[in-house]
Design a protein around this nucleic acid. Sequence first.
DNA 1: TAGATTGTTAATCGATTAACAATC
DNA 2: TAGATTGTTAATCGATTAACAATC
Lengths: 213, 213
Amino acid sequence: MSKQPISTPVIRRLPRYYRFLGDLEREQVERISSRELAQRMGLSASQIRQDFNCFGGFGQQGYGYNVTELREIIGEILGVKSNTGCILIGAGNLGKAIAAHVDFEKRGCRLIGIFDCDPLLVGTSTAGLPIMPLETLDRFCEEHHPQVAVLCIPKDAAQQLADKLISLGLIGFWNFSHYDLRITDPHVIVENVHLGDSLMTLAYCMHAPSEQK
Amino acid sequence: MSKQPISTPVIRRLPRYYRFLGDLEREQVERISSRELAQRMGLSASQIRQDFNCFGGFGQQGYGYNVTELREIIGEILGVKSNTGCILIGAGNLGKAIAAHVDFEKRGCRLIGIFDCDPLLVGTSTAGLPIMPLETLDRFCEEHHPQVAVLCIPKDAAQQLADKLISLGLIGFWNFSHYDLRITDPHVIVENVHLGDSLMTLAYCMHAPSEQK
DNA sequence: TAGATTGTTAATCGATTAACAATC
DNA sequence: TAGATTGTTAATCGATTAACAATC
C-alpha cells in the first residue's frame, strides 16, 4: 500500500485524525470534506489530503471522505485491531494512573502484567491486574512474550532495565522515566514521554516575548 | 535579547537541553562542546549552535560552553525561577498522579489548589493539598489568581470548564482531557497532552513496514 | 451536465545541515 | 602562536501550501 516511508509529522497526526473522526462518527456525521475537517482540526485542507494520500486515495472527488470508512482505514493503519502484549513496570502513582487511565485495548494493546520492586505494593492490584514482584519478570516474559514495556520507574533504573527487557525480547518502550532511553538496536522502538518538558513548554510560551505555540 | 520569535521546534528542545545539562552538571562536567552535546542528545552540532544562538551567544570559541552557565541561561529562558500559580482540576487517578509526580516547583510553577466535583474525594488530600469542591473555584480564583489550570477531567467537561476558567482570568492550560481545546483568545496558551496518541504512535512504529520514529 | 472536491504536481516556506571566517 | 570551537551565513533538505487537472 505505502511505497515510501511515512514521515514523522504525518505519523504523529494519525492518532489525532483517528480521534476527530471518532468524534464525527459520534455526531453522526456521514461524510466530510478535507476543508471541513481542516477547519475543525486547525490544519490546512491541503495537508490533510497530502497526509491521507501517503496511504492511498480514500476519498471521492466531489464528495469528500466517508467518516466511518476513513476512520476504519486509519485505525487499520494504526493497528487498533492488533493485540500487542504490554507490561507496566513501576506501580507508583504514575504507573497506577496510566494502568487505570489509558485505554490500552482501544489502541491495539493489552496490559497483561504489572511489576514493582516494592514489597508493599506487590500483591495489591491495579486496573484489575495483580502487581507482581520484579523477580518474576524473566519468567513472565518467557511465558507470555510481551512486546511493549511501559516504564514508570526512576530515571536511574531506566537504562539498565530497558537493556534487560530487550534481552528478554521486548521491542517497544513507552518510557515515562525522566530519562531519554537511547537504544542502538534499530528494531526497538522508544516513545519517550516527558511530562515535565511539556509543562515547561507551556510555562515558556506563557511568558515568552510574543506568546507562540 | 531575542529579536525574532523562536520557532516551535526550538522551544520544544529547550527543556530537553535543560535536562541534559542538569545531568552533565551532576556528572561534574564543567564544559562541553556542541559536538559532544550533540552526540549525547542525538542531535547535530550545527543544530545546537543554531538553537542557542536564537537567544544570544553563550559559548566561547575554542572552548565550548560552560555547563553550569548554559544551564542557568536556559533555565532563565524557560522561567524556572518564576512562580506561576497552578490549579489542578479533576483529582482522579491521573490528576493525583500528576499532582504527586510532576515537580511543579522545579519548573517555575506552584500547585496551589486541587478541585474535584466528587464529594467522596473532596476533603481528602493529595500532594499535600486538600481537594476542594468545584463550587469554591470562583472564589479561589478571585483570591489567588492562578494562571495555569491542569485539566484532568472527562472530555465532555473540558471545553466548558476551560471557557469558564478563562473568564476567571486563567491564561494557560495543561490539558490532559481527551479533547483538543480550541481557544480563540491569542493570549491563552494551551498545551494538549494526549497519552493515548503517544501510545498509538508507538504501536504504529512497531508494526509499520519499516520501523521509523 | 455542472458543481464539488479529490489526488497530485509544482511552488513556497521553514528547518536543518554544511561550511567557514571570527576569535578565544 | 596554533588548535579548537563558536557564531553566522549559505546550501540543502523536507514539509507545508497552492494550484489545478481528474473525476465523481
